[in-house]
Amino acid sequence: MDADPLSNRRPETGAFFQRDLGWHAPAFTPGYKTSVLRSPQKALLSLDNTITEITGPVFGHNILGELDNDLIHNFARPGESAIGPRIIVHGRVIDERGRGVPNVLLEFWQANAGGRYRHRKEGYLAALDPNFGGCGRTITDEDGNYAFRTVQPGPYPWPNGVNDWRPAHIHFSVFGHGFAQRLITQMYFEGDPMIWQCPIVRTIPDHAAIETLIAALDRQATIPMDARAYKFDIVLRGRRSSMFENRMEGN
């Protein structure tokens, strides 16, 4: 595939830094019951990246529709909009070296302002909003920046303990440049006391790691008389320079 003709950055071909599995949640986290039968029990096979993991598809901005980054309107009837506190979520995707990562596909999904998902497996009694679908997507710019508009989701109860509730959150799928960079995570909101009570949040062992999932209220980016803003930066795995690597065959 040709590199983006508008970019003067050369595609990178180095292997990704080893993933710090002690920073992520372990697979087996009994406080989150579903993980008990879905967690591999044997050791993973660790392997330096081959070209299979170093490469990955890159998505062009041409896949995006005009309203893909606007959850307030992308499912609403003409002239109407979703109900709830209007917010902008914005930030930057960087890698572990601090470099902005361009052309990252970000997909997000969330409950509506009442905490209800539009999904047939959803059982919460809160009302659906006929004008809210709950999905959106965007692609980062040359510097790794992204932004989208939505309504702040509500907290919701879920079957784990008798009375467990999820803090308000937005799910993110992040597609970097290599298949080994693939990441799914969740964003939380500054000031929510329920973050620290959540069994899914608490699968992550390190307090500082959890704090990186909490978006800050960003009053500077607030749009007067329209929407508050939250800033959520995302870090993907960094990669080695390929300068000193053994050259792969045909390279």
Binding site: H24, G134, I210, G238
Partner: peptide, 28 residues
């Protein structure tokens, strides 16, 4: 250096964001 954003489960509603047509959110 920065540390990778920690992963969290995709959850039961992953379809809404990643395969919306599959789960009946058509038109998005």
């Amino acid at each position: 250096r920065f540390r990778e954003t920690p992963s969290q489960t995709a959850g039961p509603y992953v379809h809404i964001g990643m395969t919306p047509n599959f789960c009946g959110i058509e038109g998005a």
